[in-house]
Nucleic acid binder design. Structure first.
Length: 814
RNA sequence: GCCGGGGUGGCGGAAUGGCAGACGCAGCGGACUUAAAAUCCGUGGCCGCAAGGCGUGAGGGUUCGAGUCCCUCCCCCGGUACCA
């Protein structure tokens, strides 16, 4: 047997053994142990596990291993989020079948994940592009459709004129198509949506879940709840009757100052309002807006532009006519796509009014504002209403509510809550995704595919010419089906689902991955749900992490799960950077390939190094030279365990070793609970150094030594699983270190009899003193005042005050 | 602009209001070696021979005591942005 630490040999050896013995299998419905569901976000099978995968996965693996040692029945699964664009791009560019490309990547990545020494239960692997998985994604679609949570509507989509196709948001980079670099336009298309807004109010509540403040704030902002009112402004309709422009406003109290209205250029009433004299100008403006890139439209720097439609609406509070304009600073996607403009009290409206010479009428007073003169700026806060009809003379405080009451009484409008959150557009005109299980019948209209006909399987041998329609449209044999209801000829829906739909319920499938009759059984749900610890990147804050909550709540309302939230605790790791502090990228040449690091130093060393860098939620530069320290430490541990010390039978030594050991157990346990890997490793280093020192000072007590070595290997096992296992075996212990119990902290072993305290005079340390741990303040004060250093720095003054912090310090104030 | 998170040695970082810089990297000195690598020991904020003084982005404050709490400001990173 080789006596040197050779990671290449031992890592391969133990990975095989762990697999053979199936020690990481989650045991279904074991009621003798508490369950623990640890989940880390599954990867897209890009083909290579890089450092960006190690950083989230190695620590979460350590956390799962720790829970097992604590006696939990741990579910720690892994899978692949394998639908998506890159596979289809490979098909378009290089003629490779997306299926082949995806599955060969998965094979490669599975091997790399195994090489990390991860303890995933591979028997529960889910692959979202497997028909056995997407069958249930389609099933969810049908359930949501049944509950009225899936619907079809016309919406703006990103359109690339060069590729002649619709693009996903992630395909639009800085307003341009990532492939052809053409400027993206908006096009109105009929698309499928999930009604996430139904849950807007509940998604704002985070009761009982331990999620980072940052994520909660981002989701809250994204949902964007605001209270206000809908107000209806009558306009003459084309046929001579009356229609209304409805606006959303948070300041219905300022309606008396609404001197004009602005519609988004895409607003449906624009055409009817536009007078012949203004038509050419209005149409030109709409054309320009349609061509404007997203960046241009969203820039707040840009000067506002707009055009008068020639039409007028009636202010329902004053009865006065107000001119109606269109401008692209009003977004068709927010509120009602129309605003009442109150230039005196809104900065944007003020800027617009000033540019186009529109009236500015202040409707409340404010300190320091002379509202009789021309305003220099809009102001939002004030004292008392003026020029405001019924509100005149009443305080601005409470005015919003009174205005709503007036509106509701007169029928001019009503109070409402508006959300920024929009329904989730899930249609994709792409091949490599889960087909939407719907059929279009000329007789029956839209008909869901019956559950027992799922999955709707993706056809093979498809051509990927970009035509602007889903490649599925071209597969006649697949598209043409009899209507499930009336059997007359019908056509399948050819759009596929956004890949975020797959990842919105994958955590449920892990509980029961091979279930052929349901997405999961009630029994599995009752036992495993919810996820106890979910780890992954914060970049998913308002996408995946919002969708997964929406799905869960919908599932709860269908009676499929019991809890209100899918994940009890969420932890976001930071971003690992290249050694130069920049994001790792091939073009920068700062990519650190983990495989090379493993070849050179071993997986244990890389795992530890990644955890040692700094706080997990901070990320930071990966510094390969720092690896030296970890490798040295692992080698020191190796010799500490494999080289026999000189033994004695000595109670002093035993007590000393136990004190060191249990100090370490205490610190390490606290750190691992809080996922503080960097300080945890520092504690382990201190631990090994301390017992090595005790050994080098002479002989060590045999029992104390054995206890120390055992504790060290147990404490290391979650972080460096291979070396811990090897040394566990070499020191004559039975397989496996990973099925042992986490060491228990015994407080009595770390009790100190005496303690060294710092002696301060006027807040500065001037001496130190050994005192009994339970010494009284009076006793310590007497001792301290007798110290020559203390009298020296008191310089003859008598102590005015003494602060004593037991076990730490004493401060003499003179 | 707004919302989050930061700013501590040459570097990564540590520190329930209580001894700033744990642990590690790099450096320096030494041991071993023909030599180098590896390993081990020592050293390790700055100024100073020393006593001592000064030090956690800047300035103020609270406190016996502030990296930590409060106020004002500067800088960096992430997110978001005409949301009516």
């Amino acid at each position: 047997m080789n006596d040197r630490y050779d990671p290449a040999v031992i890592e391969e050896k133990w990975q095989k053994r762990w697999e053979d013995e199936q020690i990481y299998r989650a045991v279904d419905f074991d009621e003798s142990r508490p369950k623990w569901y640890a989940l880390t976000m599954f990867p897209y099978p890009s083909g290579d596990i890089h450092t960006g995968h190690w950083y989230p996965m190695a620590p979460s693996d350590a956390a799962a291993r720790y829970r097992r040692m604590q006696g939990y029945n741990v579910l720690f699964p892994m899978g692949f989020d394998s639908f998506g664009l890159p596979a289809e791009n490979a098909a378009i560019k290089r003629g490779i079948d997306p299926r082949e490309w995806t599955y060969s990547n998965i094979d490669r990545m599975r091997g790399q994940l195994r090489r990390m020494g991860t303890s995933f239960d591979w028997s529960r692997e889910v692959i979202t592009s497997d028909p056995e998985f997407y069958r249930w994604t389609q099933w969810w679609f049908l359930k949501l459709y049944e509950k009225g949570l899936a619907y079809r509507a016309e919406a703006a989509a990103n359109w690339c004129p060069g590729c002649n196709t619709v693009l996903a948001n992630e395909q639009v980079v800085d307003g341009k198509c990532e492939r052809s670099d053409d400027v993206v336009e908006r096009r109105f298309l009929t698309q499928w949506f999930f009604r996430i807004t139904e849950y807007a109010e509940e998604l704002l509540r985070f009761d009982g879940i331990d999620w980072p403040e940052r994520i909660k704030v981002m989701q809250t902002n994204w949902i964007g709840r605001s209270e206000g009112a809908l107000l209806h402004f009558p306009v003459p309709s084309e046929g001579g009757g009356e229609e209304t422009i409805t606006v959303f406003t948070t300041r219905p109290d300022t309606v008396y100052g609404a001197t004009f209205m602005v519609l988004a250029p895409e607003h449906p009433l624009v055409a009817g309002l536009t007078t012949d004299a203004q038509r050419a100008e209005v149409e030109a403006y709409i054309g320009r807006t349609a061509k404007a890139t997203e960046i241009e439209r969203l820039s707040t720097e840009r000067e506002k532009t707009g055009v008068f439609t020639g039409g007028y609406a009636t202010n329902p509070f004053t009865g006065e006519p107000v001119p109606v304009w269109i401008a692209d600073y009003v977004l068709v996607t927010y509120g009602t796509g129309a605003i009442m403009a109150v230039p005196a009290h809104d900065e944007r409206d003020f800027e617009f009014a000033r540019k186009y010479g529109l009236a500015v009428t202040p409707v409340f007073t404010a300190p320091g504002v002379d509202h009789e003169r021309e305003l220099e700026a809009a102001y939002t806060a004030g004292d008392v209403y003026i020029h405001s009809g019924e509100l005149d003379g009443t305080p601005v405080d409470g005015g919003v509510q009174r205005a709503i009451e007036i509106a509701e009484r007169t029928g001019a409008g009503e109070g409402t809550v508006n959300y920024r959150l929009r329904d989730w557009l899930i249609s994709r005109q792409r091949y490599w995704g889960a087909p939407i299980p719907m059929v279009h019948c000329s007789e029956c209209g839209i008909v869901p595919v019956p559950e027992d006909q799922l999955p709707v399987v993706l056809p093979e041998h498809v051509t990927f010419e970009p035509t602007g329609r889903s490649p599925l449209t071209e597969v006649e044999s697949w598209v043409n089906v009899p209507c499930p209801q009336c059997e007359s000829p019908a056509r399948r829906e050819t759009d596929t689902m956004d890949t975020f739909v797959c990842s919105s319920w994958y955590e449920m499938r892990y509980a029961d991955p091979n279930n052929a009759i349901a997405p999961f059984s009630k029994e599995a749900a009752d036992y495993w749900f919810p996820v106890d610890l979910y780890t992954g990147g914060a970049e998913h804050a308002v996408m995946h992490l919002l969708y997964v909550r929406f799905f869960w709540k919908a599932a709860r309302d269908m009676g499929l799960v019991d809890q209100d939230e899918p994940m009890t605790r969420l932890f976001n790791q930071g971003v690992i950077l290249g050694p130069d502090g920049n994001r790792m990228s091939k073009s920068r040449g700062n990519v650190v390939a983990p495989d090379e690091q493993v070849d050179r130093w071993g997986a244990d060393a890389l795992r530890c190094q990644i955890m040692f860098i700094g706080p997990w939620d901070q990320g930071g530069p990966y510094n390969p030279t720092g690896m030296q320290g970890i490798v040295r430490w692992l080698n020191r541990v190796w010799s500490l365990v494999t080289e026999e010390p000189r033994y004695s039978d000595d109670e002093m030594s035993r007590a000393e070793l136990r004190k060191t050991t249990h100090t370490a157990i205490h610190a390490v346990t606290g750190d691992i609970e809080a996922l503080r890997w960097n300080t945890l490793i520092a504690r382990l280093m201190e631990f090994s150094t301390a017992i090595a020192k005790q050994r080098d000072e002479g002989a060590v007590d045999r029992m104390g030594w054995e206890e120390s070595i055992e504790a060290m290997l147990l404490l290391m096992a979650p972080l460096a699983p291979h070396i811990a296992e090897e040394l566990w075996e070499r020191s004559g212990r039975p397989f496996s270190v990973h099925t042992q119990s986490w060491p228990e902290f015994v407080e009595a072993y770390v009790q100190e009899e005496g303690v060294e305290i710092a002696v301060q005079v006027n807040g500065k340390v001037r001496d130190r003193l050994f005192v009994a741990a339970d010494a009284s303040e009076a006793a310590v004060t007497d001792q301290v005042l007798a110290l020559s250093r203390v009298s020296e720095f008191l310089g003859g003054r008598s102590p005015k005050k003494v602060i004593y912090v037991a076990g730490k310090l004493i401060n003499i104030v003179g």
